[in-house]
């Protein structure tokens, strides 16, 4: 394709990507390097309906506004926000290393820092949910493939529901069911004869519940991709394998799975990205007492509290971006190699 045509076809996408992806990321990174100006404070008399009039400290609005207008971006903080206690916490890590007597103590000191706590959960979520989703999706695709033709359609439709419904709605629906007073929660209490059993009360059970939600939500995606792939398995190769005496399991292992490998890479890529930005289940299950994720602490900085911490949220966003890139490097290298080895 001639260069001019190539660029004119690519131009809209390139422009959109620069405007909506590259520039915002650059702006967020810039924001993460600044903190707010020092608030100029003064003591004045404040009168309220209760407690009469007292002397209180308030912010001197004019002086602070003057500072803000002189330097709109704020105070330059360099990489200070990245290394403060809310993020990589180098100071606290160093102190923990010096003061901890055992490795267990060091570990609990790390988990006390919110960024590492969120990082551990996010990585655990990604590492556990992704392989399960791949395996379950394949198994269900194989099973649905064996159904009589009439029932395939409805089966596929119902299977897709967990993925189609908005993640927040899906997690709320499951939260109501597993709640200690909900149908599943109460049944579990009866089953285990423990009236205090609550999936939302203990951190371990909360994590397991969130992992199960993640698998429930993402399996339809891998199911539908593998199911589509199964329709294109070359029948001749299958028959040849059967003539050679291969059993069912061997046929699946040596013919079907290798044929689906490119799809596996595709689903793996998408799942790694999706699971790394887990957020909705933590809100839906009100699980932030026991499990927080990187996306969740960004949301908490911006919307969760009384104050908005833009710089802190920007720094966490950028660190999340770096994390996703690191996670995807192996998959991207593999895809690049496959692409290069194909004939032009």
């Amino acid at each position: 394709m001639p260069d001019k045509a190539f660029f004119s076809f690519m131009a809209p996408s390139l422009l959109a990507m620069i405007l909506f992806i590259a520039l915002p990321i650059g702006s967020v990174f810039l924001q993460s390097l600044f903190v707010e100006h020092s608030q100029v404070m003064k003591t004045v008399e404040t009168c309220s309906p209760f407690g009469g009039c007292t002397d209180e400290t308030i912010v001197d609005a004019e002086a602070t506004q003057a500072l803000a207008q002189a330097q709109p971006l704020g105070r330059f903080n360099g990489l200070g926000t990245y290394t403060d206690r809310n993020h990589l916490a180098f100071d606290d890590l160093g102190r923990a290393r010096r003061e901890a007597d055992t490795f267990g103590e060091f570990l609990s000191a790390i988990m006390n820092l919110r960024f590492y706590r969120a990082l551990v959960f996010t990585i655990a979520f990604t590492a556990i949910v992704t392989p399960f989703v791949l395996a379950l999706g394949l198994v269900i695709a194989l099973a649905v493939n064996m159904l009589p033709r009439m029932t395939k359609g409805p089966a596929i439709f119902v299977s897709l529901l967990p993925m189609i419904v908005t993640p927040l709605v899906g997690s709320l629906i499951l939260a109501w069911i597993v709640d200690a007073e909900g149908i599943l929660g109460a049944t579990l209490q009866t089953l285990f004869k423990d009236p205090d059993l609550s999936l939302k009360a203990s951190p371990t059970l909360t994590w397991i519940m969130l992992f199960i939600y993640g698998i429930w939500h993402a399996t339809p995606f891998s199911f539908i991709v593998f199911y589509a792939g199964l329709q294109t398995v070359p029948r001749d190769t299958l028959e040849a394998a059967m003539i050679d005496g291969a059993s069912r399991a061997q046929r699946i292992r040596y013919v079907v799975v290798p044929h689906l490998m490119p799809l596996v890479t595709f689903v793996l890529l998408i799942q790694l990205m999706d699971n790394f930005r887990v957020f909705e289940p933590i809100v839906g299950f009100s699980a932030d007492a026991n499990a927080t994720s990187l996306s969740w602490i960004i949301y908490n900085d911006l919307r969760g509290g009384e104050t908005t911490l833009f710089g802190s949220a920007a720094a966490t966003s950028f660190l999340t971006l770096v994390g996703v890139i690191i996670l995807l490097i192996p998959v991207l290298i593999r895809t690049w190699r496959d692409h290069n080895s194909k004939p032009a």
């Binding site: 194989l142 159904l147 299977s159 529901l161 419904v165 629906i173 069911i177």
Partner: peptide, 28 residues
């Protein structure tokens, strides 16, 4: 053709999965 036992197993698995996938929505 698949053996009947395999068909039953597949049917059972799909039914179990459909209950998991659609059950919560039916309840809601």
């Amino acid at each position: 053709q698949h053996p009947i036992s395999m068909k039953f197993a597949a049917f059972g698995l799909v039914l179990f999965w459909l209950m998991l996938a659609g059950g919560p929505f039916l309840w809601t």
